[in-house]
Design a protein around this nucleic acid. Sequence first.
DNA 1: TTCTCCCGATACCGTGCGGGTATCGTCGCC
DNA 2: GGCGACGATACCCGCACGGTATCGGGAGAA
Lengths: 285, 285
Amino acid sequence: MDLRTLNYFVAVAEELHFGRAATRLHLTQPPLSRAIKQLETELGCLLLRRSPAGVALTPAGTTLYDEAKTLLARADQVRARVAAAAGADTVTVGTLAELADARLVTVFRDRHPGVNVRIREADLTDPTVGLRAGLVDVALTRAPFDDTGIVTRVLRTDPIGVVLRTDDPLAGCDCLGFDDLADRRCVQLPEGTDPVWRAFWNGPADGSRHRDGPVVRTVHECVQSVLWNGAVGLTPMIDTLPEGLISVPLNDMPPSRLVVAWAGGNPSPLVRSFVQIAAGLYRTG
Amino acid sequence: MDLRTLNYFVAVAEELHFGRAATRLHLTQPPLSRAIKQLETELGCLLLRRSPAGVALTPAGTTLYDEAKTLLARADQVRARVAAAAGADTVTVGTLAELADARLVTVFRDRHPGVNVRIREADLTDPTVGLRAGLVDVALTRAPFDDTGIVTRVLRTDPIGVVLRTDDPLAGCDCLGFDDLADRRCVQLPEGTDPVWRAFWNGPADGSRHRDGPVVRTVHECVQSVLWNGAVGLTPMIDTLPEGLISVPLNDMPPSRLVVAWAGGNPSPLVRSFVQIAAGLYRTG
DNA sequence: TTCTCCCGATACCGTGCGGGTATCGTCGCC
DNA sequence: GGCGACGATACCCGCACGGTATCGGGAGAA
């Protein structure tokens, strides 16, 4: 009789329909049927009367419905009171501008109502978004970068594409290689940024035959450079691009990894919770 | 934050010692440490302060300890109230005399306090202990027997042995075969008992060369026949035998299976619960 | 009567979690 | 400084809980 199963039962008791209840619970009907049956076995009595006409509550089911609702409410109270006793903590989350994910922060705030969440957005010049400087507790960013003293957990991998003007001769290709970019000016990250990060994103420009392009500090700047200078830039393939630009897959690059990162050592429970939620959210979609 | 984990935390909070708490919970220390850590992650705050001196509760931990205790108590109430609403049911359990298992009935009564448990013991002449006649809801017995219309679940398998007087010439053997019992009188089950059951336990006596022995109806009778008549009888090897008798393994017999049995079709939740508890108890030892 | 649709039950599969054992790291203590 | 105690970690395994595919039975319509 765990709380999860009780929640299942409450849903079925309210919908009086296994399929609808399953939808409400974000699962499919068979596991729900099984869970309810197991609950009946554990409690030793029928809770629902299944008939072709529909599903109805037995007396025991009615009782359990009332009791379960109050018990679940109590459980929520417990969560809130413990959070209150722990004191309102603050977590500072750093994220690259392109990655701002309202969903994640929403879920986190929902689970930790008393906690203050500060968001810090950064540009392309600091892949740790302030993590190394101690400005944030946890960062949502992209690997690879210099991660000495930093722990990362991969959430997703994205192939890299080349951003081109739609009127670029290469814009029609299905996919490109480094050779196709020979003698093209590639946007550059400024000197002094994380070397691993810079080496990765400068990509073809670090090869011998390529000419350095304009130095950019933000995604916006990068895009503008492509538009105005006819340079080429690299982005993960998932980005939504403004009108007039197109992204073509680039074969010769390893994919970029969307990661959640935190300082090594003992992360606080709040940071662990953040990582756990992020991993859960990105596990399937 | 399921109820099981809360129970773990209460144990640790009371013992202030992971090892002792684990013992109390009938598990080992590592899973307990992990579960508590996961609970801390989920709640987003430290619950325990681990120091070389020992384990201490943080403010959040103290709060959770109080709240968890009342929540667990409420959960027990829910169980009781649902059982009450279902009405005091009655379950009749049939068991062969040799298999009477106080442990199983104790656990069952403990989980279903309002339920009336009737025990029916039988002799060797009815392997279903009244299940086929509808006298019991669930039976703890031995396979094989005629199980048409009956569902069984194996709990354990026991090799078969021959019961002999200790002064029998064969008593010193490590193990025996059917040939060793040629021309010995073997105890018999009365005619009219379940044919599959009878064929199994009459064992060697059904072979051509063996002479029929005395007809017995109970384990006690069987033992007495061996003692007084010098006949041989078959029993599972686990039985404790009275003074003057010994059990020698019999090679040529398939093992007997200790099973829980119930009428086919839709077993009631109470029967399902009984089966589940039995399976759990016999899973390891 | 029979066909079809709806809906809960069942079968089967893959993954993740919660158990386990073995071992480590670290801090007091003799 | 070696040792013992104790919590943390690493790793393995079985089961439970998700999923998809399919069954079965009853109701309503043709």
